[in-house]
Computed example of a mutant assay.
Amino acid sequence: MTALARAAGILCNDARFQRFVAQRIDLPTGQATASAAAEYLRRQCRIDSRRQLDTDPAAASRFAALRTDFDAWRGRIATPR
């Protein structure tokens, strides 16, 4: 597993990202599971496996946009335009 695939795996296990996902999919519990977060990530990046993030430039770009949205959601950066 290389850099982006590894980063995606770490992200899906992050409780803050799981809350971010829960809000995006209107999950009433307010907390998605790691599996639900991984499914959300694959859907948003339009991939079947996180490994594709390391070989598909378009998927890598979508992953970068998702990470930017997440960083803005948690207040690490200004909201993207």
Score class of each variant (00 low, 15 high):
Ala64Ile: 07
Ala34Ile: 02
Arg76Val: 08
Phe20Lys: 13
Pro57Asn: 01
Thr79Ser: 13
Ile25Gly: 10
Asp26Gln: 12
Ala8Gln: 06
Ala8Glu: 06
Gln23His: 11
Arg62Gly: 00
Ala64Trp: 01
Arg19Phe: 05
Leu53Ala: 05
Ala37Lys: 05
Ile47Val: 15
Arg62Ala: 11
Cys45Phe: 03
Ala65Met: 08
Tyr40Ser: 06
Gly9Trp: 05
Ala58Val: 15
Phe63Met: 01
Arg46Met: 12
Asp14Gln: 12
Ile47Gln: 06
Ala64Gly: 12
Leu4Phe: 10
Arg81Ser: 12
Gln31Trp: 00
Arg46Trp: 02
Asp14Leu: 13
Leu27Gly: 00
Ala58Met: 10
Leu11Ala: 09
Ala60Asn: 07
Gln18Arg: 15
Ala78Ser: 08
Ala58Leu: 15
Thr2Pro: 10
Thr79Lys: 12
Asp56Glu: 12
Asp69Val: 00
Phe17Ile: 12
Arg67Met: 14
Gln31Cys: 00
Leu66Asp: 04
Ala5His: 03
Phe20Cys: 14
Asp54Asn: 08
Ser61Cys: 13
Ala32Tyr: 01
Ala72Thr: 07
Ala60Lys: 03
Asp14Val: 07
Arg67Ala: 04
Leu53His: 05
Gln52Pro: 11
Arg19Ile: 11
Asn13Arg: 08
Val21Trp: 02
Ala22Met: 12
Leu4Arg: 15
Pro57Gly: 06
Thr55Gln: 09
Asp54Glu: 01
Arg51Val: 02
Thr2Ile: 03
Arg46Gln: 15
Ile10Pro: 00
Tyr40Lys: 10
Gly75Pro: 03
Ser35Ala: 13
Pro80Gln: 05
Gly9Met: 03
Ala65Lys: 14
Leu53Trp: 08
Trp73Thr: 05
Phe70Asp: 10
Ile77Trp: 03
Asp14Phe: 04
Asp26Met: 10
Ala59Pro: 07
Asn13Phe: 07
Asp56Tyr: 00
Gly9Asp: 11
Arg6Trp: 04
Ala22Gln: 10
Arg50Asn: 07
Ala8Trp: 07
Glu39Val: 14
Ala32Val: 02
Leu4Trp: 05
Leu4Asn: 09
Val21Asp: 06
Asp26Gly: 03
Ala36Trp: 00
Leu66Phe: 05
Ser35Cys: 00
Asp14Cys: 12
Leu27Val: 00
Ala22Pro: 15
Trp73Lys: 06
Phe63His: 00
Phe20Val: 14
Thr29Lys: 09
Gln31Thr: 01
Val21His: 01
Gln23Thr: 11
Asp48Ile: 08
Arg42Asn: 04
Ala38Tyr: 00
Asp26Tyr: 08
Ile47Arg: 03
Gln18Cys: 09
Met1Ile: 04
Asp48Ala: 15
Ile10Asn: 06
Thr33Leu: 03
Thr79Val: 14
Arg24Val: 00
Glu39Phe: 08
Ala59Phe: 01
Gln18Ala: 08
Asp26Val: 09
Ser49Lys: 13
Val21Met: 09
Ala58His: 10
Arg43Phe: 05
Thr55Pro: 02
Ala3Gly: 04
Thr55Ser: 14
Thr79Met: 11
Met1Tyr: 04
Gly9Ser: 11
Phe17Thr: 13
Trp73Ala: 13
Ile77Met: 13
Arg43Met: 07
Arg74Tyr: 08
Ala78His: 04
Ile25Met: 10
Ile47His: 05
Arg62Asp: 03
